[in-house]
């Protein structure tokens, strides 16, 4: 990359959820649904004396991508760690349900999920978990018709039930700044001990769950630099590609064969995971 390009590059990560959504949709096509001025906020945070955000940290942006109907669902990672509560969860699930319905009515509509989230919002615990199950259901439905494109850009990353949502997407896009895994490092350390997982050892955590590793091991489909234009171009390319020939979660025999080949008596490192998964899993 030459210097002039470097100077011109605009960080995608530095944008908030609303700006990210706008940067992905066709210029001028974005219309926000259930926006901040509708003030549908979390009834549960309020009850617990926690300041709410007017959009509950989730942007529902309707518009077009390549001229085709699309909805971008952007999680604001700065609000409550991007956690999914009843309202934010229902916004994502409800929008995906409507997109699937549109497809059945003959209006092809795709979805992009901007995942910056620790998973369930613990102050709304079981209603967050229930909403995530509904998000899973809606992704599984919509992806039959049109691509559901997941993006983990950073800096929050994607964890918990929302990383499972990512794993259900037709395509996953990550950057070098992304962390993408099931359990947050602190939770693993709490549950399994520091020898198992040292939550303060950032290089170790990145080496196993960082965007570059996920791409190299076939658990993500595109590795993009942190740049608005590059992100936009990749989303456009994937939107155009349509529904993929095979979905990662359906390649059961392939994954089980790879897991069979692992020596589980030792803890793996990044290179070993790449060696085992790098060849087999990539589509």
């Amino acid at each position: 990359m030459d210097k002039s390009q470097n100077l011109k590059s605009n960080s995608f990560i530095e944008l908030n959820a609303r700006e990210r959504a706008r940067s992905i949709l066709d210029t001028g096509s974005m219309r926000e649904l259930l926006g901040p001025f509708d003030r549908v906020t979390s009834p549960w945070l309020k009850e617990q004396g926690i300041v709410t955000q007017a959009d509950d940290g989730l942007v529902v942006a309707k518009g077009t991508i390549n001229g085709q109907s699309a909805v971008v669902l952007g999680i604001e990672g700065s609000f409550q760690g991007g956690s999914m509560g009843e309202v934010s969860g229902a916004k994502m699930a409800g929008a995906l349900e409507l997109a699937a319905e549109d497809n059945r009515k003959g209006i092809p509509t795709l979805a992009v999920l901007l995942l910056e989230t620790g998973g369930v919002r613990l102050q709304e615990a079981n209603l967050g978990l229930a909403a995530i199950a509904e998000i899973h259901a809606a992704i599984a439905d919509l992806r039959q018709y049109q691509p559901v494109i997941g993006v983990v850009a950073g800096t929050v990353g994607s964890f918990g039930g929302m990383s499972v949502a990512g794993a259900l997407c037709s395509y996953m896009v990550v950057t070098r700044e992304a962390r993408y895994g099931l359990n947050g490092p602190q939770v693993i350390e709490q549950e399994a001990g520091i020898e198992e997982y040292d939550s303060r050892d950032k290089p170790f955590i990145w080496s196993l769950t960082g965007g570059e590793q996920r791409f190299a091991t076939g658990l993500a489909d595109r590795f993009v630099q942190d740049d608005v234009d590059s992100m936009n171009a990749v989303i456009r390319e994937l939107a155009k590609a349509g529904v993929p020939a095979s979905l990662r979660d359906q390649r059961i025999d392939e994954f089980l064969a790879l897991l069979d080949s692992i020596d589980t008596n030792v803890q793996p490192n990044s290179a070993q995971v790449r060696e085992i998964f790098g060849k087999g899993v990539k589509a």
Binding site: P36, E76, F79, Q80
Partner: peptide, 8 residues
């Protein structure tokens, strides 16, 4: 945004 050290 309603994030640490910020406001909406």
């Amino acid at each position: 945004v309603v994030g640490s050290g910020d406001l909406e």
